Amino acid sequence: MMRLTDQQWTVLAPLLPRPVKRTRRGRTRQPDREVLEGILWILRTGAQWDALPKGEYPSKTTCHDRFQEWNEQNVFPTVLSALYELGEEEHLLDLREAFIDGTFSPAKKGARTSGQPKKGKGTKVMIMVDASGVPLAVHTSSASPAEVTLVHDTLEASFGMDFPKRLIGDKAYDSDGLDVELETLGIEMIAPNRRNRKKTQDGRPLRRYRRRWKVERTIAWLQSFRRVRTRDEVKAQNFLGMVQLACIVILLRLVTSPPVP
């Protein structure tokens, strides 16, 4: 089961929108906490909505409709921004450098904008994390474009407004054009050169590349949510909502975890 602690709910509750009033004949609205826990069960298990355990969570229709409602109202980006600010206030974020990478989620159903790469039909998930591996931005797109062309969109999808001083990626991000574009934003791009490229990076900045395992670890965290690891949503916006919800869980655990002595 996927349950929220009282502390986590105390943080989340004020960030969710107040329900729209219905007529007297309308049914009583199920509590947001119970519905959210049902949605999180779907996110974690990757099961179909029909498989929601009866008696443990609200009905599949209630949970699915609430997910759609929140997603259409852009509630998840709003919550992520609030958690980002909370992380900054508690000095939990390290923006001296950030890491970027992409992963592939195969699509089971007829995803409309999934693309048809060599790996098969699916969606590319781009993620940027801080120096500690905390998610800072997430972006989804067709799996066809190269990752180097999705960096700007990923930065624009940042949960906060601060850009890192250094952005570190693998050889896929070795591009003169990208270097110039990021330089105008005050960001230094650090990536090892491809074999067919003239050497443009010296040894000192590339030492930071050794810590790239932190973004790979965060991708593993995301993929522990089976609804993210494999795309079941037909609509691209619904899949993005699931990815954002997974990031909410990761950030929520960070801001509600006890401080390390």
Rank of each mutant, 00 (worst) to 15 (best):
M1E: 09
M1K: 11
M1F: 03
R3L: 13
R3W: 11
L4W: 02
T5V: 12
T10A: 14
A13E: 15
V20L: 04
V20H: 04
R22M: 14
R24Y: 07
R25C: 08
T28D: 10
P31Y: 10
P31R: 08
E34M: 09
E34I: 05
E34T: 10
E34V: 04
G38T: 07
I39C: 07
I39V: 11
W41Y: 14
L43Y: 01
R44I: 00
T45S: 15
G46C: 11
G46Q: 03
D50C: 09
D50R: 13
D50S: 07
A51Y: 02
A51D: 12
P53I: 05
K54N: 12
E56C: 10
P58G: 05
D65H: 04
R66C: 08
R66I: 06
F67C: 01
F67G: 01
W70A: 03
E72K: 15
E72R: 12
Q73G: 04
V75D: 04
T78A: 10
T78K: 11
V79P: 09
S81K: 13
A82T: 03
L83D: 04
L83C: 06
L86R: 09
E89C: 05
L92C: 09
L95E: 13
E97N: 15
E97T: 10
I100K: 00
T103F: 01
F104A: 01
S105M: 09
A107S: 15
K108I: 12
K108R: 12
G110A: 06
A111T: 11
T113M: 09
Q116Y: 05
K118C: 04
K121Y: 05
K121W: 13
K124S: 05
I127E: 02
M128S: 02
V129L: 06
S132F: 14
G133C: 09
P135V: 03
S141M: 05
S144F: 10
P145M: 04
P145W: 04
V148S: 12
A157W: 00
A157N: 12
F159H: 14
D162C: 12
F163Y: 14
R166V: 07
I168D: 04
A172P: 14
Y173H: 05
D174E: 07
S175D: 13
D176I: 08
L178V: 04
L182K: 03
L182T: 01
I187R: 02
I190T: 12
P192W: 02
K198G: 14
T200F: 02
R208I: 09
R210L: 10
R210A: 13
R210H: 11
R217Q: 14
T218W: 03
T218L: 03
Q223D: 15
S224Q: 06
R226V: 00
V228G: 02
T230Y: 03
T230H: 04
D232L: 07
E233D: 14
E233W: 01
V234I: 11
K235L: 07
Q237E: 14
N238V: 02
F239C: 03
G241D: 06
L245A: 01
C247Y: 03
V249D: 05
V255L: 10
V255K: 13
P258E: 15
